[in-house]
Structures are given as C-alpha cells and as structure tokens.
Design a protein around this nucleic acid. Sequence first.
RNA 1: CGGGGUGUAGCGCAGUCCGGUUAGCGUACCUGGUUUGGGACCAGGGGGUCGCAGGUUCGAAUCCUGCCACCCCGACCA
Length: 491
Amino acid sequence: MAKGLPKRSEDYSSWYNELVKRADLAEHSAVRGCMVIKPYGYAIWEKMQAAIDKMFKDTGHSNAYFPLFIPKSYLSKEASHVEGFAKECAVVTHYRLKQDPDGPGVIVDPEAKLEEELIVRPTSETVIWNTYKNWIQSYRDLPILVNQWANVVRWEMRTRLFLRTAEFLWQEGHTAHATKDEAITETLQMLEVYARFSEDFMGVPVIKGVKSESERFAGAVDTYCIEALMQDGKALQAGTSHFLGQNFAKAFDVQFANKEGSMDYVWGTSWGVSTRLVGALIMAHSDDQGLVLPPKLAPFEVVIVPIFRSEEELEQISEKVKEYKQALELRGITVKFDDRDTYKPGWKFAEYELKGVPLRIAIGPRDLEQGTVELARRDTMTKEVVQADTLAEYIPRLLEDIQKSIFEKALAFRAENTRTTDTYDEFKEILDNNGGFVLAHWDGTATTEARIKEETKATIRCIPLNAEKETGTCIYSGNPSDKRVIFARSY
RNA sequence: CGGGGUGUAGCGCAGUCCGGUUAGCGUACCUGGUUUGGGACCAGGGGGUCGCAGGUUCGAAUCCUGCCACCCCGACCA
C-alpha cells in the first residue's frame, strides 16, 4: 500500500513535504521559490487571520493598505535596514513589454526603463514611515496603530513550503508613538498577543524573549520574538515584535510637536507573523497518520462519515445526520457531512485523518438501530460509541478537551526537550543527540555567538524575558554571565 | 554561487552500464459488475514530444556534445 506517509522519525523533511502535499495544503509552484496555497491550506490561514485580526482590533489597531512597490531611494534611507534586506529583493526596472521583433513572444521594451527602480516590498517600514511623515504633525496625531495584511517578497536562495518561500503572506503592524515608553509597551503588548495566539489557538507553546544583536531585525533597536520547538528538535521563530526606537522616524524625518511645544522624533514599532505559522502548526502536532489540527483552527471541526450499503440506507442516515449537524451548528461547531458515494468509508477515514480533522463521527445502520454514533478523536486516535442525543452537549466539551490536550502534549514535548548545561562538550552532545532547546550561559558577545554557530550550527534563539538572574560562566569563553539564554538549531 | 543528485503517463519508479520488435511496472484515472463498520475486488480500457537541441548509427530512452529544469547539502533568511 503506497498510501502511507514517510515515517516522521526516519526522514522528517520528506515527511513534512509529503504531508503538506497529501493533506492538500500547498505545493511548489512553477514560479521559482513560490508556493501555491490550496483551498484547504488557505482555510487554515483564514482561520488564523480571523483570530489574529480580532486580537488586533481588541487592542485598538486598525487595518490599512500600503503599496506593493517601494522606490529604491526609500529603502536606502535607513542604513542598517538596507543592509539587512538589499541582498534578497526583487526589483522592477521596466514598465512595458512589446512584441519581440525577432520572433514570437514578448520582450521587455528597452524604451520603457523606469527612472527610478521599484523594489517589491520585502517589508513595508520604509513606505509606511514615508507616509506617516504626512500623517503626523502633533502629539495629538499619535499614536497611530495600524496593521496591514499583505504579501511580501524575499528572494530566498532555498525555500521550503510555508517555512520559507520567495513570496509569503503576512500581517505587519506599524505603530507610531509620542514616547519611548509607550512604544516599548506596544512592542511587548503585541509580543504577548502573538504568544497568546500561538498557545491558545495553535496549541503551540512558545518562549518569549529578546533577540541577540546579531539576530535583530535590520533597523530595530530591539527585536522580541516567540520561539517554538518543532518535533524534530529544531526551533522555529513564530513571530516577532520590534521596538524601532526613533530609527525610522529619523530616516524619514517624522517629527511632531510635543506637549511642551518642542519638536521630537516619533517612536516606532513593527510586528508580524506570516504563513510560516501554518508550517509551525503542521510541524508541532502532526504524526505519521498526517496532520493534527487544533479545533480552533480546523477548517471544520467535525466530519460526519455515513456508512451505507444502499441509497435507502444513506437517506435514512442523512436524515439523522441533518438533525445532529444542526444541533452542533447551533452551538457554533463547524461540521462537514461527507455523503459522497464515490469513496468508501475506510478511504474517507484515512483522508480526514491525513487532513487533521479533530473529530470524526461515523454513523451506519447499526447506529440507527441503537441511536448511537461512533466518535473518533484525531489527536489520540481513540474511538468511542456514544448516544446520539448527547452529542450537542458532549462534542463542544470534547473539542475543548482536544484543544487543551494538543497544547499539553506539545508543552510536555518541549519540557522533555529543554536541557540545561554548563559545559561546551555537553552542549554539543545535546545538540547532536537530542536537539531541542539548550539553556546555557553566554558572555553576551557577538563573537562567541558567531563561533558557537559556526561550530555547532546552533544559534541563540532568544534571551528569555522571564530568565532568572543566575551567575555563571559562558560555556564557550568562560567569561561571566548573569543569565541563561536559549540555544537551538533552527529553521 | 559551490558540492551532490534527478529528469521516462497525473503521481512514484524500472529500463540507460552492454543501442535492436509495438517503452514497461505500481498507483491514480475511465467503463461494467460484485462490494461498503479502517485506504475493496475482478474484468476491460484510455493516457508517453523518454527534459530540450544537435550529433553518431541501418536503428537511440540507452552512446557523444551543448543547453535547460528541478531536488538535496552549504552560504542568506519570517
């Protein structure tokens, strides 16, 4: 039977790629480095968007939209920002095509060269700050709390479905504030929003922290992040929130008259999460059977599979199913009834397991007689027969339980794969044998960080916000350190 | 851009070393029948510029030359 996925434990990479394709989430496009997100995969992203967007609205943010193209000169206004992004940008140089005089097809019209090249946005700080300059005169215009849902392009050399593609979908929030404190508060608030989303909706536990200087966003004063651990022991940065200081305000000359009547530069933040979260979701929970989706993000939470021999039997079942389905939908549960006669029940079972549907109800003649249904949980792969009239009551609780236990399983996995060490030898041994997060002392220098990265491929994922003060010595240099940081190999 | 690999039916592959009828297998697809509580079975059927271009040869998926594409590992990164 050639239907199974590659084993997760044997070849994580193939397992992931196969799963993404077989669960109908996405595929590589013919266009270099780009991805086609298929309807089922996109439905998950839409669920994420809806939940995240609501959290933004609840914290006072509004959506807006800024241009896809950035004039080259904008990008060069903030020195470190350019340096960070210049290498990976797509550039528009012409605005017209014409018939090829030497044959069929079209060529770029050399007459139609742009005066100034346009960069396809890799991120929008520059266009947005250029716009904010016109929006802000006085402290009364502040704060500006804006988010945009958009696509961005980064010409990555190597791509992986959802985790790294040349074009990806994301949201980027860009806020402007009158004071430093307010901007920092905003930065941390949004980090908290991301952490809550990840844990409460995705069921993925994360560590909140701040990036070391070398991992910092180009143009930021501080980059905060949430770091998640995948099942292969590698870390994944799931979201970032940047305190920009006055860097972009200075680069774009965004000043305002403060209460005291003097001019001051605006303080900024930016923060984002992307379709990479779908990748995180897949890698955090799925198994050899396929995807495991937390109910809150599943395109549908329950699938009903009828088991029938004849048209009449299907009709009888369908009648009951309509009843059950309605009762569940009244409770806000999304239900899909798959009454196709072109696929057999066993095939459907396997298919919905591959797609990670949290709960499956099977109902056949036997159940009709006894007023029962068979309930199967995707996360634990357990089955039980329950009285149909208890469903409306029982399923909402069960879904909550699934949501919770998926998170707890991931949390337990992280706990098992988080280790503490004080020696470099053990550090290397842990990375090679177990992977996962390694808590170790670091002397705070970029040199040490770079050496460790070079020798072990592990990077400092973050300096945890809740790190306890603890004196120790750097595992690499032996120099003093006052707290442990998190190392891991990462995506 | 460096190192390795692969291009043959929608997908996965064999065949290439050592050239030889009509290019094959699994799966998917279509038709008919029997089936249906864990990816059904039987029978029949359709589907191929063998990555592209050129060359060698009576004859090329197979040998030679050039090109292209994709994948994996590295550098870059949400």
